[in-house]
Simulated scan of single mutants.
Amino acid sequence: MYTIFVVSIIIIIVVLLLAVLTTSKAYSYKHTVDPIDDNPYLENEKIENGEKKQ
């Protein structure tokens, strides 16, 4: 019975450790945003609204 308890505790610790590591790695990821000039969706929106392309 104690072996099942110990194995369960080890599995819980490993899962918790992996969750903390992946969350910290996700928060350290640097997100980037495309400049407005290079946005193809903005050009399509201008065409649909009848505006001239610059």
Results as ranks from 00 to 15, higher is better:
V33M: 06
I10M: 10
I36H: 00
V33T: 15
D37C: 03
H31K: 14
I9A: 14
L18P: 00
D34A: 13
V6K: 10
Y41T: 04
I13N: 01
A19Q: 05
N44T: 07
I4R: 10
M1H: 09
V33P: 00
P40L: 01
I9C: 07
K46E: 11
L16W: 04
L21D: 03
K52L: 12
K53W: 03
L16C: 11
N39Q: 05
I47W: 04
T3M: 07
L18V: 10
I4V: 07
E48Q: 12
I9D: 02
D38V: 02
Y27L: 15
I47H: 03
E43I: 14
T23Q: 07
I11K: 05
Y27A: 07
A26R: 11
N49D: 13
K53A: 09
M1T: 06
S8E: 06
Y27R: 14
Q54K: 11
S28F: 05
V7I: 12
I10D: 03
L17P: 00
S28I: 02
K25I: 10
K46M: 15
K25E: 08
F5N: 06
S28Q: 13
K53Y: 07
I9H: 00
T32F: 06
L18F: 12
D34N: 08
A19W: 07
N49W: 06
L21H: 03
Y2G: 09
S8L: 13
I10W: 05
H31F: 11
L21A: 15
V7S: 11
V6D: 06
S8P: 01
T3W: 07
I12A: 15
T32Q: 07
E51N: 04
E43R: 13
K46P: 00
V33D: 01
V20Y: 09
N44Y: 09
T32K: 07
Q54M: 06
K46W: 12
L18I: 12
A26T: 09
L18D: 03
I9Y: 02
T22Q: 09
V20N: 04
L16I: 12
V20H: 02
Y29A: 12
N49L: 15
L17T: 15
S28D: 12
I10P: 00
E51P: 01
V6H: 05
K30R: 14
K52W: 02
D38I: 01
V6W: 06
P35D: 15
S28H: 07
D37N: 10
D38G: 03
D37Q: 13
V14N: 02
Q54V: 08
I11C: 10
Y29T: 14
T23S: 10
E43D: 13
V14W: 04
E48L: 14
H31E: 13
V15K: 02
E45D: 13
K53F: 04
I12M: 11
V33N: 04
T32G: 08
P35G: 08
V6I: 14
K53V: 15
I12H: 01
Y2S: 10
K53H: 05
S24N: 09
M1K: 07
L17A: 15
H31S: 12
I36D: 01
D38N: 13
Y27N: 12
V33L: 09
G50E: 02
L18E: 03
L21Q: 08
S24F: 10
I9G: 04
D38M: 01
I36S: 00
K53C: 01
Y2M: 07
